[in-house]
Amino acid sequence: MISEMQTGIQIGIYLVMALSVFAALAAVNLPNIFHAALAFIGTLLGIAGIFISLRADFLALAHILIYVGAVMTLVIFAIMLTQRLSDPNVRQHNNLSAPAFLGGLAFLTLMAKLIYTTPWPVKAAGTVPHVSVMDLGQALMTTYVFPFEVISVVLISALLGAIVIAKKDPL
């Protein structure tokens, strides 16, 4: 029973991974920028699916809530303000293509080096610890309280900055 279920789950995970890679390729290759944004939403949903398969369901849902629910909506708003957004004749490359390719390649080698040099402790399947919301909360309030507070300060200053920019009359 366990093995049949597990093969089923594995096939599902590979499908989700293939789907997110496909959506990511679509996001960079589609000529219509609005379609590209929607394909990117597909990628984000696929990543959330991978999180779920790794039993990080809180992370998956927070990912959907923040990226799909909020960030992508803002991206779509920004797209609405661009010109020629559905013109199929827009060039997809400009003269910065080569430096961008080199930068991407450098980042990829860096990531590959990091991934290959990190020792990944492999455990038997089914023993992945399940991190509950309560564990996360306690970790944020004890071990990681300093980074947590720093992030709060950064967010508040961003908020204040937005208010100052949006204010009609100068202070």
Binding site: L38, D57, F58, A62, L65, V68
Partner: peptide
């Protein structure tokens, strides 16, 4: 019976703005 049921509700219903915009 998800142990993060309410978060699931909020996360899933927040995505419903995108089809409307589509």
């Amino acid at each position: 019976n998800l142990n993060i049921g309410f978060l699931y509700f909020i996360a899933v219903s927040s995505t419903s703005a995108i089809p409307i915009f589509m």
